[in-house]
């Protein structure tokens, strides 16, 4: 204790919390964060107000009289055209579109990425390059011919493909392929090659190495791919409009039809409840997945 050196200051000078730069820094960030959070807040509060209060009040105020009536109405009885069974129909349609699309697109892309990373063949690089370029072609260019392709393939096999769930699943698989293939190819390339070689020497083939060596090691990348696909497919509007019929419209399309319908009086609280319901699935995934989501969205920026 008597040692004088103990009391001489060491290390960097501690930054004061209330220094001018800090106030500026945290002040700016708080204002920005408030701005970004505002729409979510407005959605939630509006959806919990009665219509009288929405008309009279301030959109930024909290509800004085809380009600969950708009949520029930949005889910069960809101009308789109002749159907008055609310968004629940769209929700279940979206679920029915989502599950097979996610499974099919990830299975195909993971095997494809594995083939591109570990089992290169002549021409593989060319097809991969075109696949990457294809990700940038505006969808509008390919929409109509794909209708014809779906019809032709459906006719060939003797069942309806255009306008059905199956057709939409195929379309989602096609347009998810570039980004997912890139994701899986990069991941499998980053795994140590010795593992692959050891399995080869032991006599394992293409599928065996995939299922017994690669798959057990790549759970994180499958989660990233799943996050990417679930949010992407859930949020899709364009393909839902073009490749399905009103009975099986996904939730986003139905939401737009409910909110932007010109008939009847506008019930803004119900509209906001419906909007929030549609955004709930990706929001839950986003807040639950944390950094994995960032990894997923940044995948597009990773160069192959």
């Amino acid at each position: 204790m008597s040692d004088a050196t103990q009391f001489t200051p060491r290390g960097p000078r501690p930054r004061r919390i209330f220094s001018a730069p800090n106030i500026f820094l945290y002040g700016t960030l708080t204002v920005v964060a408030a701005y970004y959070a505002l729409p979510l807040y407005v959605m939630i509060t509006t959806s919990l107000k009665t219509m009288d209060e929405v008309r009279a009040g301030n959109i930024f105020s909290l509800p004085t009289q809380w009600t969950i009536e708009p949520w029930i109405k949005a889910w069960a009885t809101a009308c789109t055209g002749i159907n008055c069974d609310g968004l629940s129909r769209g929700f279940w349609n979206s679920v029915r579109i989502l599950i097979p699309s996610v499974i099919l697109s990830i299975s195909i892309a993971s095997v494809n990425g594995y083939a591109l990373a570990n089992w290169r063949y002549k021409g593989a690089e060319f097809f991969f390059a075109v696949l990457m370029i294809g990700a940038f072609i505006p969808y509008q260019v390919m929409l109509y011919p794909i209708v014809l392709v779906l019809r032709a393939v459906g006719d060939f096999f003797g069942f309806q493909l255009y306008g059905t769930l199956g057709g939409l699943v195929i379309v989602h698989t096609i347009f998810g392929m570039p980004i997912l293939t890139l994701l899986f190819r990069n991941y499998f390339s980053s795994l140590p090659e010795e593992l692959f070689k050891a399995a080869r020497v032991d006599g394992a083939g293409f599928w065996r190495i995939f299922f017994q060596v690669m798959l057990p090691m790549s759970l994180p990348i499958f989660v990233v791919a799943m996050i990417l696909q679930v949010t992407g497919i859930w949020n899709d509007f364009l393909f839902g409009v073009i490749y399905t019929k009103p009975d099986i419209y996904p939730m986003t399309v139905q939401l737009n039809n409910i909110v932007n319908s010109v008939q009847g009086t506008k019930e803004y609280n119900v509209n906001m409840a419906a909007t929030l319901l549609t955004g709930l699935v990706p929001l839950v995934i986003y807040f639950a997945s944390g950094k994995l989501f960032v990894r997923g969205v940044a995948a597009g920026a990773v160069k192959g």
Binding site: P39, N235, T252, Y268, T275, G279, F287, G290
Partner: peptide, 21 residues
């Protein structure tokens, strides 16, 4: 997390919220 969350939402949801605000 707060600044990135809108990216998880669809354009339809985004458009409808801002239409309201």
């Amino acid at each position: 997390t707060i600044i990135l969350y809108p990216f998880a939402l669809s354009f339809i949801v985004t458009g409808l919220v801002w239409q309201w605000i």
